[in-house]
Design a protein around this nucleic acid. Structure first.
Lengths: 229, 229
DNA sequence: TAAAAAATTTAGTCTTGTCTAAAAATATTT
DNA sequence: AAATATTTTTAGACAAGACTAAATTTTTTA
């Protein structure tokens, strides 16, 4: 039986591996866990003893198959609980993270599978992130930052990168939601701000916002546009 | 913010106070918490420092108003989660205790109040125990052991004392449920076993079982019975 | 009411997970 | 490649919460 802390480290390493394919360095983990490098070293050693990560001094850690499975199950629980809070208890998506951080450590397979069924087997959570199945598999969606799209390309918003309360509230205010179709109308070369059309409404977003909106990879062919010259 | 352990101690003391009106002795708490007396002493000292209990060396502890409120809120959470598990996720009543022991420590007032509303403000949990309201008040039902009833008396099963899996499964097997009307048909003087009629079915239960079934205090007057001599 | 028994507390130790400061290894720069 | 900077590890300490063994207080018994 793992402690909350061990589970949190595994989850952090999992997320880091997703971002960069390589192993997670001590410092990267420390930043993610908001702790000190020396504490991370201790924990990596312990997780290595338990065969949950492969750890080599001065070279960071990689999840073992066992570690990956546990990390995925923690993420599964986190995302199912978030879905519960939003869909059943009417929480808004910026309120659920901290509570799910606690709920993800509740130990009961039966509980989480019952919850899954109760929610009718959702495949993504309220933020658009995929929910791993019982075996830890999840449909790893291909996605790109909205800021990489060219003018006239459009795609569907699948996830957000930053999930701070501030950003989530910004999205609510602008009525931007997971699943919305977003079209890039024009890109201002000076500051890279983007004129977008979202569900019919047209307005401007900054480059920073565009870098935190992840959309489906759009079809490679641009829609043909009549040239006027 | 209290630790899980501190919350568990407060809850244990609360339950002990309910049973015996006096303060909780070190040993009683140790037994309830399945720990050693010396550990209890340490914790009582700590809780006293935080003004959650009134503690005098060698004389046990009593909950302060603040301590009582926290204990009641933990019990509220426990019982609401049990209700959720049984009513929404279709757990049986013997499966919910251990999971609720974990869930009761989740910190979020909004969560628990939303859950309360989602469950439509239940007043008792699946074991028949009253659920404290937001302010920690609960309708303290008056109840007695079934074994204290006389022949021909009848009453309604409101709670059980022992809530071990074994006992709960026994009750399921015998189809005894909270709310059932139970009538004492006859008491065997030799072993104090009791012939009962429960929801129309008549059978025998041991004294031990009768001591763990708590029923409403029956009306004081016995139903009149025709004398045959 | 003195002696024995039981309950409680104290003292010292252990584990988990954290920290700071210093040492060691790796990476970067000149 | 040597010097410097950065990263990582080690060593030692601390707090929480538990434990054992010994000491102390309270309660019971004779």
């Amino acid at each position: 039986m793992l402690s909350f802390s061990e589970e949190n480290y595994l989850k952090a390493i999992y997320h880091i591996e997703q971002l960069q394919t390589e192993g997670a360095s001590t410092n990267t983990v420390a930043k993610k866990m908001q702790t000190k490098a020396s504490s991370v070293t201790d924990m990596l050693q312990k997780l290595a003893d338990k065969r949950l990560v492969v750890y080599k001094k001065y070279q960071g850690a990689l999840l073992s198959a066992k570690g990956k499975k546990i990390a995925a199950s923690v993420i599964r629980k986190h995302r199912l609980w978030e879905t519960f809070l939003v869909n059943k208890l009417n929480f808004s998506w910026d309120e659920v993270h901290d509570i799910a951080e606690q709920l993800e450590h509740i130990k009961s397979e039966k509980l989480i599978d019952s919850l899954d069924a109760f929610l009718e087997f959702p495949r993504v959570d309220p933020h658009g992130d995929p929910i791993p199945d019982k075996d830890g598999n999840m449909t790893k969606q291909k996605k790109v930052m909205l800021s990489t799209l060219k003018e006239n390309q459009q795609s569907k918003l699948v996830t957000i990168k930053d999930s701070s309360d501030n950003f989530l509230r910004y999205l609510d205010k602008k009525q931007i939601a997971i699943g919305n179709t977003i079209k890039v109308i024009a890109i201002e070369p000076f500051d890279k701000s983007i004129q977008v059309q979202i569900e019919g409404r047209e307005f401007m977003i900054t480059e920073e916002v565009a870098e935190n909106l992840l959309v489906e990879i759009p079809s490679l062919t641009l829609p043909k546009v009549k040239r006027t010259n």
